[in-house]
Design a protein around this nucleic acid. Sequence first.
DNA 1: CTCGTTTTATAATGTTCATTCTATAATGAC
DNA 2: GTCATTATAGAATGAACATTATAAAACGAG
Lengths: 193, 193
Amino acid sequence: MARPREFDESTVLDAAIHCFWRYGFTSTSVTRLTDTTGLTAASLYNAFGDKRELFKRALERYVEVHVGERIERCRRLPPREAVGAFFAEILNRSLTDRERKGCMLVNTALELAPHDAEFREITAGMLQRIERFFLECFRKGQADGTIVHSSSPDGLAAHLLSVLMGVRVLARVRPEKALLEGIVSQALALLDR
Amino acid sequence: MARPREFDESTVLDAAIHCFWRYGFTSTSVTRLTDTTGLTAASLYNAFGDKRELFKRALERYVEVHVGERIERCRRLPPREAVGAFFAEILNRSLTDRERKGCMLVNTALELAPHDAEFREITAGMLQRIERFFLECFRKGQADGTIVHSSSPDGLAAHLLSVLMGVRVLARVRPEKALLEGIVSQALALLDR
DNA sequence: CTCGTTTTATAATGTTCATTCTATAATGAC
DNA sequence: GTCATTATAGAATGAACATTATAAAACGAG
């Protein structure tokens, strides 16, 4: 009926993710997007609306692929190991991230959420998803005795969420193994004694 | 010998701080700066060089005024109280920050440090200053018995630094009293048992 | 083959950006 | 008062920005 697309939407989104992840929304120009996706501006606008809409799609895909899948991977483990594995992945990512991209969700939370109500809601929801994952782990772990009872699950979950944010920030400035590992091991120790 | 300045440098820097703090480096246009400082672009460039140089001066002043003075204030207290007072101030600031500006140092660490070697060094040094403050408190507190020995001072200091970063990020997205207070009280509990 | 529809390529749009030019104004030294 | 020097005001500069207009191209339906 009509001319077919010459590109794969997910592939283009992945390229857009890489730009936005590394440089953020404002510092990613449409020119940079056309260069790295290979699409013309016309195709980009025709397919995604505008830059903001494209960013939204990219962020949603980022969270599904990079955050959601990590949570699913870890959720299959026993609760205490799940939290450990989660932070082990974060640590590994942060220490091998040569472009210092950090976490696109954290970056967006700081760049757009404060001034943009829509992105504030979106990022808040995504952060709550991580918090809920921690919460589940702690509830289960405290129930079966693999995680200590000294603190409430809610307090622990919020605390670990903030440690996660902190590690993601620090990793973009000082991606030092000793520093980040120290922070995480300190956080995990909270679960054991 | 020459025409005198019509403005006070510190006053102008404070106005610049407010812009950069709220919107970051990239999203603060020179027009916005001339509007809020009251200076013409010519005066701004004559006095400070360029936008980047002005930002650097603003950041340095921000850290002196807002971070340095807080550290000095708290340093006068006994070690355990010093840490408590520090986080009490952070919490209070975060919960009354209606513009969701967060912390200009954290914002810069995420916006500029990853791609700019000079700002990476600057922000890293400033973060280390906070870390050293924690470290001093822990060393003294462990020596006089007001802070528990269960963890190394270095590990604790790094951990609290990351909690601080995390709170500053979360506060820009979800400035909720219960959430932030929960995180901080959890962190402070680490010092007592 | 022709028509309707969507995608592409290219060029153009008008705006905003950081920065600088030109000219005028204000001072102290002489 | 004149001069050298620095600060201002306002306009101008050219580059980069996001977005769109125009027209050609590629397909299925009829």
